[in-house]
Computed example of a mutant assay.
Amino acid sequence: MREALFIKKNKGRWQEMQANPSQYPDEMAKEFIQLVEDLGFAKTFYPRSSITQYLNTEASKRYIGLYENQKADTKQLFAFFKYRLPLIIRKHHAVLFICFCLFLLFVAIGFFSANKDETFIRQVLGNGYVDMTEQHIAEGHPFKVYGYGNEVLSFFFLFLNNIKVSLIEFAGGILLGIPTIKGLMVNAIMVGAFECFFFRHGMGVSSLLTIMIHGTLELSTFVVAATSGLVMAKSWLFPGTIKRLDALKQGAKEGVIIALANFPMLLMAAFFEGFVTRHTGIPLFLKLVIIGTSLAFVVFYFIVYPIRLQKQLNLSRKD
């Protein structure tokens, strides 16, 4: 194709792109691809032409625009987890504390109920699971259940299942939080009965050191998920001075934001359970490092950091 014909054929499109460059990443990427294709053609057949330089300049502009958009998206995500989420958590620290206390209460109920009544463990965990675990204990591999299945498939299954549980807990807030509290209660009682079962067999400490590799984060997500649901329920039940519907919208929005805090923790908990917990022979030091690091993160991000950030914000407002 002659250069004049090539220019005549595409001139209108190039002028439109130059006059009205897209501000949306998807459209900008489409323009970039088209310009790169034109540039490749021009470089092949008209390497020394001014049109080649023109197309190179326009393609570079789109590339820089795409790069800046990516940086902006990354900054927004970083700002969300650094500022917005912690401040909303701080706003609802009282609800978080109540959910934590309820969780401990239900765990204690599960533990002591199982300790008083042997049949309670089977009612909560199921006969099949109890019989299987007793067989594993007799074989000398009490935590063999964590070694079943493919590691990658286990990781995805656990992650998706825990997300489902968290979303159900959040959604329960629209029904006055009753399903949310019920879900927290069921999960916590199962944890208490589970630990009682191993303490009865003289393996309580071993079970904690094994299960809390992933459980430190996973159990924390139970409390955070319940908090997200009760924040929505609280806004519905106690709207304050604003309209109930407006309060519900605000509570639902803040509940969703709190629920989003669970996703990174659920991802890591599923990773630990799918890839690490199954290796019960790992050194004690490594177990303590994983558990300690997970616990430190939860305490810092959900308690210490929000309080510190709120204090800094208050001081900056005074200044």
Rank of each mutant, 00 (worst) to 15 (best):
N56C: 15
P283K: 06
M185A: 15
D26Y: 02
N127S: 15
K8E: 11
V152C: 00
I181W: 12
G40C: 09
K249I: 09
Y63W: 05
A259N: 10
G126Y: 06
S235L: 04
L260P: 05
F198S: 00
Q76E: 15
V152R: 01
I89P: 00
F81K: 12
G147I: 01
G281C: 06
S316K: 15
I168T: 03
I88R: 09
L96V: 04
F297V: 13
S113P: 04
P21T: 12
N69F: 05
F45T: 11
L104Y: 08
V289D: 02
F275K: 03
E58Q: 15
Q15T: 12
A261S: 13
N10Y: 11
H141M: 12
F80L: 15
L313A: 06
G204A: 09
L175Q: 04
G292K: 12
E151D: 01
R244H: 04
I242P: 03
L295H: 02
F100H: 04
K8M: 03
E134D: 14
T210P: 03
F32T: 01
F106A: 04
F111P: 01
E68Q: 15
G281R: 01
F197I: 08
A4Q: 11
V289G: 02
K75M: 14
Y301R: 08
N161Y: 14
V256A: 07
A247D: 08
L245Y: 12
L266C: 01
F285H: 11
V298W: 03
S207K: 12
A138T: 15
Q70S: 13
R13F: 07
S113A: 13
A19C: 00
K8H: 10
E58F: 11
K61I: 13
G126I: 06
H93I: 13
E273A: 14
L284T: 14
E31D: 14
T293C: 13
G177C: 11
R317D: 02
L102F: 15
V298N: 01
M203S: 07
V276K: 07
F103K: 04
L176T: 06
E58N: 07
K287S: 07
L5N: 06
F302I: 04
E273R: 14
I137Q: 13
D131G: 03
